[in-house]
């Protein structure tokens, strides 16, 4: 396969970036998208040029490190697939591919396709946990949980924190990410004690980080490699409303 790549190149957070074109002539369809970029980078290094920086790690679709927008869609055209699991057979010979970093104010570009997603960590620090001292937990089977709720909680917990939801959202909103964590714990008995503080803390931090508001485009769900449902966003709205109205009541 021959491909033309237009890639966002930006030296660091302080400089401006621009799209740069590269021609690749020997792409095999069995390559993953990142392996295709590896080939490009090997060529660039041998020419003495700076290779394209991109985040990646497990390359099996679970760590959530890979973060690039391919032809306007985070993680590219294949549904429920991270960039590392996307393979070149999904593209056509001669195609032009635009590769850009995840775009959002809260995800500033560090270099090329690498963005800073620590905003997600800071949201987690404001309540994305259940406080339990190591070693003080009761026997696990003392907390029965209906299979339905356990399964639903797992649906929400499947989030890999990649940020594709934010990157896909025309408003740069992080509602899908936040709603997944809030709902995972709201569905479980262990999560009830800190339920109100959690949703208020996480949502307020989400806004402080500069993520946008949800206007129900549902692009997040479409881009999510784990197909986290937007129904969790609907639930987050009422969770937050209830928590705000009743936080001072007893």
């Amino acid at each position: 396969m021959k491909l033309k790549l237009n890639i966002w190149r930006q030296k660091n957070a302080k400089t401006d970036g621009k799209m740069t074109s590269y021609q690749l002539n020997h792409v095999e369809e069995d390559m993953s998208f990142l392996e295709m970029l590896d080939i490009l980078n090997e060529d660039l290094i041998l020419k003495g040029d700076d290779p394209v920086a991109f985040d990646h790690d497990c390359r099996e679709g679970i760590c959530g490190a890979c973060s690039m927008t391919i032809n306007g869609t985070p993680h590219g055209p294949e549904k429920e697939t991270t960039t590392c699991q996307l393979h070149m057979r999904k593209f056509k010979d001669g195609q032009t591919i635009n590769i850009e970093p995840f775009r959002a104010k809260a995800f500033p570009v560090i270099k090329d396709l690498v963005v800073d997603r620590n905003a997600f960590d800071r949201i987690m620090q404001k309540g994305g946990y259940i406080s339990v001292r190591t070693g003080q937990a009761q026997d696990a089977n003392n907390i029965p949980i209906s299979k339905k709720n356990a399964d639903l909680a797992m649906d929400a917990a499947a989030c890999i924190g990649c940020g594709a939801c934010v990157a896909a959202c025309p408003n740069g909103a992080a509602m899908l990410f936040v709603s997944a964590k809030v709902n995972q714990f709201a569905l479980l008995p262990q999560g009830q004690i800190e339920r109100k503080e959690r949703v208020i803390g996480m949502v307020n931090q989400m806004e402080a980080e500069g993520f946008g508001a949800c206007t129900n485009h549902f692009e997040c769900e479409a881009a999510c490699p784990k197909s986290i449902s937007v129904k969790f966003i609907a639930k987050l709205n009422t969770e937050y409303l209830k928590a705000t109205l009743t936080k001072n009541s007893f």
Partner: peptide, 29 residues
Amino acid sequence: RLTLYNKTAKPINYTVTGYITSTFSSRTM
């Protein structure tokens, strides 16, 4: 307020957009 806020949350859009589920209606509210 929300619209202006959302504009600041996404200061740069993609050179090529690849919308999947959003609609002309939803983007022109």
